[in-house]
Design a binder for these strands. Structure first.
Lengths: 213, 213
DNA sequence: TGAAAATGTGATAAATCCTCACATTTGCAA
DNA sequence: TTGCAAATGTGAGGATTTATCACATTTTCA
C-alpha cells in the first residue's frame, strides 16, 4: 500500500508515466493512444483535445489512458519529445564539423530552413509552440499591436534610408520588433543578471540591423 | 454529431462584455473585479485564478462578474489592454521625432529598456506573456533544449573567435538561437510569403551577428 | 498449474466554468 | 412624488471535463 503523501505538486514539472508498458500488448496500446492524440491535436489543437476522445479513438478505456499518461499534458509532451529529439540530432550533426565562417554560414542557413520546414509541417509541434487556445487569442492581438508598433519603426527607417526597398524595410522592422518582444520575454524568464546581458545583446543586434553599423 | 464542423473562425476572438457598466455603482464594482483579478494573477497566475475567487475577493457574486466579463479570458485581457495602451503611447512618443541614426540609437535603446522594466515589474503582463501554466511547463523544457542547442553554436564560435569573451559568446549564441525559435514561431503564424521573408531576414541578421558581417 | 504482476475497465468523484430565472436598485418621465 | 422600465445583483445548479479507484481480466514465469 502506498502511503498517500499530500505533497505539493511541482507545478512546472511534467509528470512521469505512472507505469511503463512492459508487455507487447500495452506497448501497442500506448502507440495507439499517442497516434490518436496526435491526430486529434492536428485536427483541433491540444487545448480542444479531450482525454475521453483520445481514449475512444485509440479504442481503449479512459482508465488505460491514465495508466500510462498521468495527466493530459504528459501525452502532449510525449509527442513533442519525439520531434525535439529528432531536431536535436539534426542540429548537432549540422554544426559538428563547422571549421570556418563560410561553413557556419552554410550550416546555419540550412539548419534554420530545416527548423522552419519541420515546424511548418508538423501540427503537433505547431500546437505546442503556439500555446493554448486562450494564448492564441491574446497572441493574435499582441501581433496586431506589434505590427502597429513596427510601423513607427518603418516610418523612421524610411526617413533614414529613403532608397531602400519598402517591403524589406517593413520586414526588417517587424522582425526586429518581434525579436525585441521575444528577447524581453526571454530576459524576464531567466535570472536578472543574464536577462540584462541578453537585453543588451539584443539592442546591439537590433541597432546593427537598423542603422546598418 | 458532426464530424468536422468548420466553425472555428471565431475561436481566437475575445468576447466583448455582455453589457457595459453605465451606472456609477456598477462602474465601481467592475473596478473592484479588475483589482481582485489583478491581485490574484499576481499571486498565482491567470491559469490558477478561479472566477469564484475573483468574485469573492471583489465582494460580488459570480453572476455579477459574468454580467460584465463574458468569460475568464476577457477579464485577463481587459487588464492586459491597460498596459499595452500605456506602452503604445510610450513608443510612438519616443520614435516620433527621430531624425538621424544617432537619434534612432538613443530612442530605440531607451524604448527597449522601458519595455524591459515594464514587463519586469508588472505581474499581469508577465503572466499574459508567459502563457498558461501548462505552457510554462513546456516552455521551461524548451528553454533547456534551447540552451543545449546554443551550446553547439558556442562550440563553433569558440573555434572561429578564440579570443572573444566566453560569456559574451554564450550570451550571443543563446540569444541568436532563441531569436531563431521566435522567428520561426512568428513565421508559421503569418502567411507563407511573409513567413519566408521573415526567415530570410532572420538568417541575415543572425549571421551578421555570428560571423561579424 | 497457480499465484503474482501487469494491464484493462468505466462509473463516479472532484473541480470549474458559466447560465438562468428571479430579486433588487436606479433612472426618469409623467 | 409615483410608478415603471432598464440596469444591476444573486447564487444554486447545469454542463463539461479531468482524473481516481476498486475490481475484473490477461500475462508472465517459477
Amino acid at each position: 500500500m502506498d502511503e498517500k503523501v499530500p505533497a505539493k505538486p511541482d507545478q512546472a514539472a511534467i509528470a512521469s508515466p505512472r507505469r511503463s508498458p512492459s508487455q507487447q500488448r500495452s506497448r501497442e496500446r500506448v502507440e495507439r493512444m499517442l497516434a490518436a492524440a496526435s491526430a486529434l491535436i492536428a485536427e483541433q489543437g491540444s487545448d480542444a483535445m479531450r482525454m475521453g476522445e483520445v481514449a475512444e479513438r485509440a479504442g481503449v478505456s479512459i482508465g488505460s489512458l491514465y495508466q500510462f499518461f498521468p495527466d493530459k499534458r504528459s501525452i502532449v509532451w510525449a509527442l513533442a519529445e519525439r520531434y525535439t529529439a529528432e531536431s536535436q540530432a539534426c542540429i548537432s550533426a549540422a554544426l559538428k564539423d563547422v571549421r570556418d565562417a563560410e561553413g557556419l554560414k552554410q550550416a546555419f542557413s540550412e539548419l534554420v530552413d530545416i527548423y522552419y520546414q519541420l515546424f511548418l509541417a508538423e501540427p503537433v509541434i505547431r500546437d505546442v509552440w503556439s500555446g493554448t487556445q486562450a494564448d492564441k487569442a491574446l497572441r493574435s492581438l499582441e501581433l496586431a499591436d506589434s505590427r502597429a508598433n513596427a510601423e513607427f519603426l518603418v516610418a523612421v527607417l524610411k526617413r533614414l534610408r529613403p532608397d531602400a526597398d519598402p517591403v524589406e524595410l517593413e520586414t526588417t522592422a517587424f522582425l526586429v520588433w518581434q525579436m525585441g518582444e521575444a528577447a524581453v520575454r526571454l530576459a524576464i524568464s531567466v535570472d536578472r543578471e543574464e536577462g540584462d546581458r541578453l537585453v543588451e545583446a539584443y539592442k546591439r543586434m537590433a541597432l546593427r540591423e537598423l542603422v546598418g553599423e
